[in-house]
């Protein structure tokens, strides 16, 4: 590697190897990652869109171009609409609840509250547990009759529904699990941001006689805005990406009451093996994510400017 010619190169001019080819070096360094990214992200995204215009190949019958047939079938499919509306209700509940709790947790853990180490441990623990494992534990909480929830409410004499078996409560149960799982994860981002806030600000506000709530509303919360946007985008993505608890706890039931979009894609693709229809559903999900992607770019842009 250390040829005599590099030793001769002067301190002012970089060695020839550096001058010749930042172009080639750049692309060579990028090559391995870009091959994998292209194969498993860009190609499948494009292939999804193409496949949505073809029929599902069956046996010896190859896929044929069917135009917008899959889309028409999708628009006429009540389960699709159910999955979309479920996912909207799910996202609209999970996202604000998770973010509000995450912020409250971060404020507590960052402050001078008694028992701080225990609080931090307790809030963050769900993040390191596999969703699949905790969903099994939550199954017991919701179990009819002898489950923890029924035992507690039964002791108070409150009548209880069959939590996961009832159309009206099943989705709420999954929302609770999702909030529980992610709040501590997002707490970390708020905590990181709070630690960047100068303590002198709080001191100054205290001298001025500002209440804690006023200080939070007028100083802390605005300062946390970039973090809030970052957490928001991630919370949105998670609400469309994570369906482990659906698979474990309800399988989309009862009567599709807990079918989320990705779960319906999974069912169409790997239970009914209707890959063309699964691709069509995926296009909807990709369109949604692309829409939020624009938001993400704005956020990232702002974050880069802070550096």
């Amino acid at each position: 590697m250390h040829g005599p010619e590099t030793k001769l190169a002067t301190a002012v001019v970089p060695p020839p190897r550096w001058r010749v080819s930042p172009q080639i070096h750049g692309w060579l360094l990028l090559l391995p990652a870009s091959v994998l990214l292209a194969t498993f992200t860009h190609f499948p995204a494009v292939a999804t869109i193409i496949d949505s215009f073809y029929s599902t190949p069956k046996g010896r019958r190859a896929a044929v171009l069917v135009g917008a047939d899959n889309y028409q079938a999708m628009l006429a499919d009540p389960v699709f609409w159910r999955a979309v509306s479920n996912n909207i209700v799910y996202a609209a509940s999970v996202i604000p609840l998770t973010m509000a709790l995450a912020l409250a947790m971060a404020l507590w853990v960052n402050g001078r509250i008694p028992g701080r180490p225990f609080l931090r441990l307790s809030f963050f623990t769900p993040t390191v547990l596999p969703m699949i494992a905790v969903a099994n534990i939550w199954l017991f909480f919701y179990a009819p009759g002898y489950g923890l929830l029924d035992q507690m409410l039964g002791a108070l004499g409150v009548p209880t529904p069959n939590w996961l078996g009832d159309q009206h409560t099943a989705l709420i149960c999954l929302i609770a699990v999702a909030v529980w799982k992610d709040a501590g994860f997002f707490m970390i981002f708020y905590l990181a941001a709070l630690q960047q806030v100068s303590p002198q600000l709080a001191e100054a506000a205290a001298i001025e006689g500002a209440s804690r709530w006023y200080f939070f509303r007028r100083v802390t919360f605005p300062l946390l805005m970039p973090t809030t946007l970052f957490v928001l985008i991630n919370a949105i993505i998670n609400s469309f990406r994570l369906i482990d608890h659906v698979v474990v706890m309800t399988q989309g039931g009862p009567d599709n009451a807990t079918a989320l979009l990705l779960f319906y894609i999974y069912e169409a693709g790997f239970k009914f093996w209707d890959t063309a229809y699964a691709a069509t559903l995926t296009v909807v999900l990709l369109a949604l994510l692309a829409f939020f992607a624009l938001g993400q770019f704005v956020v990232l842009d702002r974050r880069i400017h802070y550096q």
């Binding site: 894609i265 693709g269 995926t282 992607a293 993400q296």
Partner: peptide, 12 residues
């Protein structure tokens, strides 16, 4: 890829 994660491209 931050938005279009492998988790949603399961079919392809």
């Amino acid at each position: 890829q931050l938005m279009i994660m492998p988790d949603v491209l399961i079919v392809e």
